[in-house]
Simulated assay, not measured.
Amino acid sequence: MAEGWGAMTGAGTQALLRGVRVIDAVMVRVVRPGTNRRPRARVVLYAHRHPFRAGTAIGTGLTALFLVCAVAAGVPLKPTDAPLLTAIWAGSTLIFALLTRWEGIAHAEHQEQHRPRPRPVSGRRIAAGLAGWWAAVTVLLWSEDKAKHRPADFVVTATVTATLTLALVVTVLGVGSVGERRRRKR
């Protein structure tokens, strides 16, 4: 009678393979790609954000299940089996982490293709935002001058604020165009 890990050959291996085929057939029927319209579960979202952690959890669980099955089958475990168990754990962790990562990337690409494009911000909205910012800063600077008993002229304060606003807009547009040019070069 063979001892160790080689004892699981023959009829046991065939039964295991049949079981895997049955589980695979059931999963293919239950989870058909493209027909699942429900929102993703929290576990799936966590796995997509942290694929290595999810792979580690699945790999650890799979290794523990493997050990339980081996002990239940009567396979004697020796200290020399530790490298093999470590390899099983590391391999399953890596495989599940990569599969989770690839599935997350595929799902993100699918979501990106079907996401509606954002509408560009209208010129009216930009003008209203700048006018509001200009008015608020003008009043703040003018009231600061009044509070410190400095000579405060509202027209001068409004002009200074308009100049600052114009400088801010030019800076933002300049930085944006440089970034856009760099993105186009790639």
Rank of each mutant, 00 (worst) to 15 (best):
L84H: 09
S177I: 07
V178E: 03
S122Y: 07
T93R: 07
T9N: 15
V160F: 07
W133R: 06
T171G: 09
R38D: 12
L164Y: 08
T163D: 12
V160A: 11
A11M: 12
V169K: 03
T100Y: 04
V22D: 04
P151N: 12
G129P: 08
R119L: 10
A97F: 02
I126D: 03
R186M: 05
A147F: 02
T13E: 14
E112S: 11
E3D: 12
G104Q: 02
V175C: 05
W89Y: 02
F66D: 01
M27L: 13
C69S: 07
T80G: 14
R37W: 08
A128S: 05
A97H: 03
A106F: 14
R124H: 03
P116W: 04
A7T: 11
E109F: 12
A11I: 14
A152F: 09
W133C: 12
V121C: 00
A127L: 13
W134T: 15
V68I: 10
V68T: 09
L45G: 00
V31G: 10
V170I: 14
R181Q: 09
L45C: 03
T100C: 07
A64F: 08
W134H: 08
N36Q: 12
T163C: 07
A64S: 06
E112V: 05
S92R: 01
A158Y: 05
R182Y: 08
D81T: 06
L164A: 04
A90Y: 00
A73F: 11
G55E: 04
R124E: 04
E144C: 14
V178Q: 05
T100P: 00
P120E: 08
V175T: 09
E144D: 15
A147N: 13
T93K: 13
H149G: 10
P151H: 11
P51C: 01
A106Q: 13
T56R: 04
V155E: 08
P83Y: 00
A162P: 03
G74L: 02
V43K: 00
P83H: 07
T9K: 04
T161W: 05
L62E: 02
R18H: 07
L16H: 10
G19I: 08
R184P: 09
M1C: 04
T157H: 14
P83C: 00
L166K: 06
T13R: 11
L130D: 11
V28E: 14
V170L: 13
D153K: 05
L140M: 08
G176P: 00
P120K: 12
G91M: 02
G55W: 02
A131L: 12
A135P: 04
R21F: 15
E144S: 11
A73S: 01
A108Y: 10
A162L: 14
A135D: 09
N36A: 08
F154P: 05
G91F: 07
A73Y: 12
R117Q: 10
G55R: 02
V28D: 13
H114D: 06
I95Y: 12
L77A: 03
W142G: 04
F52M: 06
